[in-house]
Simulated scan of single mutants.
Amino acid sequence: MTVSVSAGLLGPGPDEILLAFTTALRAAGVPVTSDRSQTFLAATSVVGLDDVSATYAAGRATLCGSPDDLDRYDQVFEAFFDHRAGLPRARNASPPDRAVPTTLPLDDPAGGGAGEEEADDVVRAKASGAEVLRHRDVATLDAGEKSRLAAMFATLQPRPPRRRTARHQRWHRGEVDASRTLRASLRRLGEPTEIVWRRRTTKPRRVVLLVDVSGSMSGYADALLRLAHRTTTVLAARGGQVETFTVGTRLTHLTRAMRLRDPERALVAAGDAVSDWSGGTRLGETLKVFVDRWGRRGLARGSVVVIFSDGWERGDCRLLGEQVARLRRVSHRVVWVNPHRGKDGYEPVQAGVLAVLPHVDDFLAGHSLATFSELVEVVARA
């Protein structure tokens, strides 16, 4: 990376330029919060703006919240502080078209010829825009694409997981219902009669959703809450029950907000209820509060618990592992959904992820609508 930054170049207002750089990072998809911006200003005042490598390292240490932010940070830093193009660099007048690259022609060429025989052996296919959007990382979408994706959540059809109860119902096969068979025989004065069969009845199993809303998960929070709202609405219509919480620096119960029929109103109500958006990550402490308050009371007992988090824990990772182990003992199944799980080159190297992996039943990806579809199938079969 060839970057030239100097105090003279910044002029009389270096703080304004540095804050403009954080704004450019936020526009590029890096979840830069106000406290991170202030920390960045404090760090650059200590290392000095005349040291390019120190300024670059200070920004990476204070403004990046996950491994996915590092590449974007490098690109924005080089583009923003490149003296050959001016400071800051001007934005393009019109954004480039986000066309799906394809080598297939949009229309068949007019006329025939010898090329038609060769074309007969070629399968001409092109993915639709909706199908491409289903597999896109939701954190990289622009406002228009997010609006289209929000409408596509209606295609998800969650089904409630079911559990067997102590009650029985008459059935055409299964186990012999001795009492009913005997009563039927007595009504015929002891004559042999048709054998009556029975099976255990089932009822929907409760689903508990724990959504991480810390800074490193801010790019996925909107999509995850839309998924929670869709799951709550559909499962409630089918006799199921869904409880939704957010975790970050504190635990917030969002079930009442998620029960609103309109998804936009539900998200607004969730935004008003949650006070730790894009904050730190204290998963171990918040999970301990959840298990102490809700696990022992029976909300999590026998439930399918789904945790949406990237595992970036700022607290004690051993505490996080202990609380997930406690949660696993009282619940029916624990599913951990990591948005980075389905990306190329991902390795579970975070201390928080390594602490919880021995105690979860499923470790799934959760960065696109396609992975959300796989998740609802896993929950339905739990």
Rank of each mutant, 00 (worst) to 15 (best):
residue 1 M to F: 08
residue 3 V to F: 05
residue 4 S to C: 08
residue 7 A to Q: 15
residue 9 L to Q: 11
residue 10 L to M: 15
residue 12 P to S: 15
residue 19 L to W: 06
residue 21 F to T: 06
residue 26 R to D: 07
residue 29 G to T: 03
residue 30 V to M: 02
residue 31 P to T: 01
residue 33 T to M: 07
residue 37 S to M: 08
residue 39 T to G: 15
residue 39 T to W: 11
residue 46 V to D: 11
residue 57 A to L: 14
residue 57 A to R: 14
residue 62 T to N: 01
residue 62 T to F: 04
residue 71 D to M: 09
residue 75 Q to N: 10
residue 82 D to I: 03
residue 87 L to Q: 04
residue 92 N to Y: 09
residue 94 S to P: 00
residue 96 P to Q: 12
residue 98 R to V: 12
residue 100 V to S: 06
residue 101 P to A: 01
residue 105 P to W: 09
residue 110 A to Y: 07
residue 121 D to I: 03
residue 128 S to I: 07
residue 129 G to T: 03
residue 134 R to Q: 10
residue 141 L to W: 06
residue 142 D to Q: 05
residue 144 G to F: 08
residue 150 A to E: 11
residue 151 A to L: 10
residue 153 F to W: 10
residue 159 R to K: 14
residue 160 P to S: 15
residue 166 A to Q: 13
residue 172 H to M: 05
residue 179 S to I: 09
residue 182 L to C: 06
residue 183 R to L: 14
residue 185 S to H: 06
residue 186 L to S: 06
residue 190 G to Y: 00
residue 193 T to I: 08
residue 197 W to F: 12
residue 198 R to E: 14
residue 202 T to E: 13
residue 208 V to I: 06
residue 209 L to F: 08
residue 217 M to F: 01
residue 219 G to Y: 03
residue 220 Y to W: 10
residue 221 A to H: 02
residue 222 D to H: 12
residue 229 H to N: 04
residue 232 T to Y: 01
residue 233 T to R: 15
residue 236 A to I: 02
residue 236 A to P: 00
residue 237 A to R: 15
residue 237 A to S: 15
residue 238 R to W: 00
residue 244 T to I: 08
residue 247 V to G: 07
residue 247 V to A: 14
residue 253 H to D: 15
residue 256 R to K: 10
residue 256 R to V: 12
residue 263 P to L: 07
residue 263 P to F: 02
residue 266 A to F: 03
residue 266 A to Q: 05
residue 288 K to I: 01
residue 293 R to L: 12
residue 297 R to P: 00
residue 298 G to L: 05
residue 302 G to T: 02
residue 305 V to G: 04
residue 309 S to N: 07
residue 318 R to K: 10
residue 322 E to H: 12
residue 322 E to R: 15
residue 324 V to P: 10
residue 330 V to R: 13
residue 333 R to Y: 01
residue 341 R to V: 02
residue 356 V to W: 06
residue 357 L to F: 03
residue 361 D to S: 07
residue 366 G to L: 02
residue 373 S to N: 09
residue 374 E to D: 15
residue 375 L to C: 04
residue 379 V to W: 03
